[in-house]
């Protein structure tokens, strides 16, 4: 099935005292079933806004999203979201946090079956020994493991990852990327990940969508990444195309992202203000999704 998820003409504007601020403008993307897509761009360019519209946490101002043949309206557990901060409820154990979602999705299953699902995914992410620990007793990386388990345990149609490893140190980040790619290989859930880490995007994705700078961010370039799967970090990094692709991505982020951003017609109301101020607006608005 091609075009499992279609984002067409997706636009997000926020009203400001100086007129509407256009964050994302006419964003088009078709995602195939079982594909892993990374959305990359400078911070504040509106990538998280796209993800947040896909998650249903933010209403698109224009355009629409179709997932598995149905137009999306509002949030729902058919999309598993992994937030940047793990967003675990601190008064619940790791197990209870995962169960909260599992209970929602598999309400017809028996209590034991649901407990099995939660236990299974927590074990797969390596938390078999810490099922009944509260988030305060877990390290940052372990918390994000719970977040990943929670998303996968829903057996969602789509996985949405909002800079899931952004707050981790690089060693933990590598570990968790491995955990993620392993789980994804077993389940093949269509995934969209927002990141600004070039290597992370290359290691995990089938395609990398580069976004231009905001305001009015849109799809800049799409880069195909066809390293063979299952992927090993070492093999990927030694692949002859790795540094070519990496160079291309960095080139885009350093040069072309800005050029396209400035080439886009500025919003009429904002034209009087200096560019620096305009550039900051989307970042501010993006903040609720990224509390870090």
């Amino acid at each position: 099935m091609s075009d499992y998820c279609q984002l067409s003409g997706l636009t997000k504007t926020y009203p400001t005292p100086r007129g509407p601020a256009v964050i994302v403008k006419d964003f088009n993307l078709n995602i195939r079933k079982g594909e892993f897509i990374s959305l990359i761009g400078h911070s504040g360019c509106g990538k998280s806004t796209v993800l947040s519209m896909l998650a249903g946490l933010s209403e698109p101002s224009g355009g629409g999203i179709i997932l598995a043949g149905k137009e999306l309206a509002g949030p729902g557990p058919d999309r598993g979201v992994v937030f940047q901060s793990p967003c675990l409820l601190p008064w619940m154990t790791a197990f209870e946090n995962v169960m909260l979602g599992v209970d929602q999705v598999f309400f017809t299953a028996s209590r034991e079956e649901r407990a099995q699902i939660a236990t299974y995914y927590l074990t797969v992410v390596g938390l078999g020994d810490s099922l009944h620990k509260r988030p305060s007793e877990l390290s940052q990386g372990m918390r994000q493991r719970v977040g990943i388990a929670r998303a996968f345990a829903l057996k969602p149609k789509m996985l949405l990852l909002d800079e899931p490893f952004g707050m981790l140190d690089s060693l933990t980040r590598y570990e968790l990327q491995q955990v993620l790619i392993e789980l994804w290989r077993r389940n093949r859930i269509t995934a969209l990940m927002v990141t600004h880490d070039v290597d992370e995007a290359l290691f995990l994705s089938d395609r990398i969508v580069c976004m231009t700078d905001g305001p009015a961010a849109e799809v800049g370039e799409v880069i195909e990444v066809d390293f063979p799967r299952p992927r090993e970090r070492k093999a990927v990094m030694e692949h002859p195309d790795y540094y070519k692709l990496r160079e291309e991505l960095i080139q885009f982020l350093e040069v072309r992202a800005h050029r396209k951003g400035t080439a886009a017609p500025p919003p009429p109301s904002a034209s009087a203000s200096p560019p620096a101020v305009r550039r900051r607006a989307p970042a501010d608005i993006e903040a609720p999704m990224n509390p870090a």
Binding site: L57, G76, P77, F83, C87, L100, Q104, L154
Partner: peptide, 14 residues
Amino acid sequence: IPQDYLNVARVLKL
């Protein structure tokens, strides 16, 4: 209440 917690509730459609 942190927006994060409310987002979890919304995403899971509690």
